[in-house]
C-alpha cells in the first residue's frame, strides 16, 4: 500500500473513531427508537428531577448534566406562573428550592426569574434561576427525552407549547388513573403522546386496567410501583411484557421497588438492588443516582453478560 493511502486510511480511522465515540452518546431519536422497541435490551435511565446532586433540582444545568451522563429521560415538574408561563418547579411554592417565598401562581415569570435556586446545602446560587418549560425543551431537543410531571392540569396549553417546538415525540406523560378517566381528561391527545400508565399491585383491578390500556392504546411502557415483591407483582410484570410493553421501575425509594432502592444499592450492594431490577426484565429505571446506575449498567452488568 502506498504510504499516502495508508496515511489517509489512518486519518479516516481516527476520524471514524472519534465519530463512533460520539455516536456512543445517544440522540433523542435513538431513545425514541428504543422506547418503541419492546425487544430492545438497552436500558433507559430516567433521572428524577434531573441531576439534582450536581445542580439544583429542575434547573437547566440539571438537565444538561443528564445529557452528558447518557440519561434517556429527565423527569421534570411543571408549575404555571401568574401570567401563564410554564416553569420547572416541583412544589407549589418556591420556598424549599429558591431564596423566595410564596406560591408559583402568585408570581409573574419576571418575578420568579429574579430569585435564585438553592444548591443542595440550601444556599441560593446566583448562577441558577427558575427555568421556563420552553428553555428546558430547547436544550433537550434532539438530545434527551422529558417526562413532564404535573402537566395534566394544563395539558392543552403544555401540548401547544410542545408542538410549537415540534417536540411531541420527546415528551412522556404518565398517570395512575384507569383508562376511562385518562381518556375523558385527555381525549384524542391520549393516542398522540407517549403515555405510560402507573400500576400498583395494591389495586384490586390492576390486571383489568392493564388489559384495557393494552387493548385501547397499547402503551409502550407501564410504570410498576410495588412496596414488596410477590406473585401479584410478578403477574403484573408478565402481563406488561406479554402485551409487548416495557416495565418501568422506580429505584428511588424502598416502597416503590420492594426495597430495591438507590440508597440500598450504594450502601448494601448494586447487584441485589439494581441488578435485581434488571433481572426482572425492567428496561426503564427511574433513579436519584443516574451517574452510578449508568456506570453500573455499562460496566458491571455488560461485562457480566460477555
Amino acid at each position: 500500500m502506498k504510504p499516502i493511502i495508508s496515511l489517509f486510511i489512518k486519518i479516516g480511522a481516527v476520524l471514524l473513531w472519534s465519530l463512533s465515540a460520539q455516536a456512543q452518546q445517544k440522540s433523542a431519536q435513538d431513545w425514541i427508537n428504543i422506547l418503541q422497541d419492546h425487544q430492545a435490551k438497552e436500558v433507559m435511565v430516567i433521572a428524577h428531577r434531573g441531576d439534582w446532586r450536581n445542580a439544583p433540582e429542575n434547573s437547566l444545568q440539571a438537565i444538561e448534566n443528564c445529557i452528558k451522563m447518557g440519561v434517556a429521560v429527565a423527569e421534570i415538574d411543571i408549575q404555571r406562573s401568574k401570567d401563564g408561563h410554564f416553569v420547572l418547579m416541583h412544589d407549589k411554592t418556591i420556598d424549599r428550592t429558591t431564596n423566595g417565598k410564596g406560591k408559583v401562581e402568585n408570581y409573574t415569570l419576571a418575578e420568579l426569574q429574579a430569585f435564585y435556586l438553592k444548591d443542595g446545602l440550601g444556599v441560593p446560587q446566583p448562577v441558577y434561576t427558575i427555568p421556563t418549560l420552553e428553555d428546558a425543551l430547547k436544550i433537550s431537543k434532539g438530545k434527551i427525552l422529558l417526562n413532564l410531571d404535573k402537566a395534566d392540569r394544563w395539558l392543552e396549553e403544555v401540548l401547544a407549547l410542545v408542538d410549537q417546538m415540534e417536540m411531541r415525540d420527546h415528551c412522556i406523560f404518565k398517570s395512575s388513573k384507569p383508562y376511562a378517566e385518562v381518556k375523558a381528561q385527555m381525549g384524542d391527545e391520549l393516542e398522540k403522546v407517549w403515555f405510560m400508565p402507573i400500576v400498583r399491585p395494591s389495586n384490586p383491578n390492576v390486571m383489568q386496567d392493564i388489559k384495557e390500556y393494552q387493548e385501547k392504546i397499547k402503551p409502550v411502557a407501564f410504570e410498576v410501583c410495588f412496596p414488596e415483591y410477590n406473585q401479584d407483582t410478578q403477574d403484573i410484570f408478565d402481563a406488561v411484557k406479554q402485551g409487548n410493553g416495557k416495565v418501568w421501575i422506580n429505584s428511588l425509594w424502598d416502597f416503590l421497588s420492594g426495597g430495591h432502592s438507590d440508597e440500598r444499592a450504594m450502601v448494601e450492594g448494586k447487584d441485589e438492588t439494581w441488578g435485581w431490577i434488571l433481572e426482572q426484565g425492567a428496561t426503564m429505571i427511574q433513579t436519584d443516582r443516574p451517574e452510578a446506575l449508568i456506570h453500573y449498567i455499562k460496566n458491571e452488568k455488560q461485562n457480566e453478560e460477555l
Binding site: H48, R53, P56, E57, T97, D119, G120, L252, E263, D288
Partner: peptide, 10 residues
Amino acid sequence: KSNCGIRYSR
C-alpha cells in the same frame, strides 16, 4: 434527608 430535602435517607 438527602440534599435539597427530596426525601429522608436511612
